[in-house]
Amino acid sequence: MQVRLRQWLMVVLTVFACGWLPASVLAADNSASQEQAARQQTQPGNNAPVWRDVRGGDNPYQTTQVRGIESTVLMQPAGETWRQLRNGPITIYGGWLIVAVMILIGAFYALKGPMKLHDRPTGRRMLRFGAWDRMVHWGAAISFVLLAVTGIIILFGKHILLPVFGYTLFAWLAILAKNIHNFVGPVFAFCTILMFLTFVKDNLPKLYDIQWIAKAGGLFSGKHVPSGRFNAGEKAWFWGGVTLLGIVVSVTGFILNFPNFEQGRELMQQANVIHAIASIVFMTLSLGHIYMGTIGVEGAYESMRTGYVDEAWAREHHEYWYQDTVANNKSGGGAAKPAAASALKEGWKA
């Protein structure tokens, strides 16, 4: 006991002598050698504490002449954990999750078919997405799809494409995928920021969103529930998908994309696990969004392609937004501005 006390006293004295920062390192070192000394009393020949210290690489007296990131670390056991996570649950459950969601959406489409307009189109069109809105949306969307496809090649290609393509052809595809993924990644992060700034105003939660959620947006009943410019489903995708998952995949992606900031392997392993899980969830959610935006809802794709929707569509899908727009236009003087015939046809060029 007295020996222990004296040792601790020495540690405390060294702390004061050396200042705060190196003190913690010295204390860590002492604790390892102390543990080793204690182990030798009970189990002579068991050097486990030393080897644990060796694996950690935190010991300041562990050196090498090779200059490099973590070159003094003799062994890193975390790599095996990463391998088990990535090759195990992430690949298996993640892969089947994507397949399952695709099958579910396909089944839903086969059973229910697309959501059609109930009223007849009025022929009068109103602007839903301006040129900037569409540019930002498609910038993010195209970069997202590129990242999703290349990411799938990198994670699952070995299991689904390699047996078909053979080694040489698949390696070419994979190196192309890696480079597209690495270079498009920052573009996506940039577009995500613009996307947030562009659409955040109309995605703020409103009281009437509760009603929409309670009725699941009329997905099963087929009856439309009134909503603002964006309904609660779109808002959930905006906050949970674009914003939250967008930030998660972007931050972890940057950690992996730029290894020249001397980050260690453990950080990159953790980033990779989070990146993979978040992007698989992101992809499954995006499948829902892509379905609704293309074949799932009649008129939805045209709204983002041309920027214009039919008044009947606006009234049915986004009633409050429709009323607001009409009211604003009236209060601004003059009736709702009808779009020029050319803009109707090729609105995306306008």
């Binding site: 973590e70 070159s71 670390v73 003799l74 062994m75 890193q76 056991p77 790599g79 095996e80 990463w82 391998r83 990198i154 080694y167 040489t168 390696a171 994979a174 190196i175 890696k178 290894p259 392997r265 990159m268 392993q269 990779n272």
Partner: peptide, 17 residues
């Protein structure tokens, strides 16, 4: 090396660096 794409995953996984 003709197949290697330089992703760095082997470097994450290897216990010996």
């Amino acid at each position: 090396k003709d197949l290697c794409i330089g992703c760095g995953y082997c470097f994450y996984a290897c216990p010996f660096g």
